[in-house]
Write a protein that binds this DNA or RNA. Structure first.
Lengths: 187, 187
DNA sequence: ACCACCATGTAACAGGTTACATGATTAA
DNA sequence: TTAATCATGTAACCTGTTACATGGTGGT
């Protein structure tokens, strides 16, 4: 008799999801987060470690100690059948809305209080970050095996499309700041 | 003798920024948040009220009681010169990185554990939300006076460009899920 | 009479972050 | 020997959320 659907946080589902993919140590989970999920879900490392015992207590993952290997005290975790079921139920349930928090856009919105020069700088910094992100994502895109991990590919492409749109907007933004500058000078 | 640059949270700067624009009540600030900043910065209403006394104590805003007007106990807040300076310093300082939290992309990434049908649904829900957002932003775009509030326009356009990119990606996503489905059926 | 909006918060909680601590192993 | 990587956490803090509470005012 399954207990009434225990509510997990999204972070817990994220970890559970990674452990449904393969058996890993907490350290491995953190690495997996770092080169996949972190663009849209990024728990602190300490949070990942904190989440593991909770999933364990709920019977959604199991722990296997691998102490002998090289003298290290290391534990591997993997999703149990019950954990996989919980994961599938979560995938079918309503999805929490996305959250964006952009100090950059906030500063831009309050641009009245800054000089045009500073606004150009701000936009340039955004452009730089976005280019870095795109470099990273394009490298990742080239590196994934599409038939092996199509879903990773999908999320990478999402990032790429949106990043490209961001760069297009950058030109618009510079142009608009220039216009304002000229208007201010002629006034 | 100004105390050593008090650190404010981004939420505090957001509120300060709105109060530098014009004098408002806490309620007004919440409304202002709701029809402008909320797409990239969205504090809870109670948080806004909690932040006001802190800014007041720091001398960054001043309070003016307007009790007589209609028997209501209402206070208007506005940025002080010191507050405006703090705001300008913040605009010049390093910008915290953007944060995205997308349970949607997380679910997609873990798509292995869901059916193609469910994945189509997931993408459709995203498409719906994105279309709604675009409708809203386009209406807002048409409503702003570009010469009056160019920075708002800039952030709106940002949302529009990225939203459009999202919708383009949606087609890709459906196509890829279809491909997987066919591949699975033929296997 | 009632509902929507104006107006201001309090209380309880949780989820998450940063900084710190510790120690083993391995490659340069 | 030193630095990087593997490996696992603890402690303190805090930002922020949700739910609740309260009351006036204006329109229909």
């Amino acid at each position: 008799v399954a207990a009434d659907e225990p509510k997990l946080t999204t972070t817990e589902y994220a970890v559970l999801g990674l452990l449904a993919w393969r058996e890993m140590s907490g350290y491995d989970v953190n690495r997996a987060v770092d080169n996949s999920v972190r663009f849209f879900w990024s728990p602190a490392k300490s949070r990942v470690y904190a989440v593991l015992p909770r999933l364990l207590d709920a019977g959604l993952i199991r722990r296997r100690d691998v102490g002998g290997e090289r003298g290290t005290d290391k534990a591997l975790y993997g999703a149990t059948p019950s954990g996989k079921r919980a994961l599938r139920r979560w995938l079918l349930a309503d999805t929490d809305p996305d959250l964006v928090r952009s100090p950059f856009l906030l500063k831009l919105f309050l641009g009245d209080n800054a000089s045009p020069t500073r606004l150009h700088e701000l936009v340039d910094e955004y452009a730089g970050r976005t280019r870095d992100l795109l470099d990273h994502l394009r490298a990742a895109e080239a590196a994934v095996d599409a038939s092996e991990d199509p879903y990773a590919l999908l999320t990478i492409r999402y990032g790429i499309r949106r990043g490209e749109a961001g760069l297009q907007w950058v030109d618009e933004a510079h142009a608009l700041v220039d216009t304002l500058e000229r208007a201010a000078r002629s006034a």
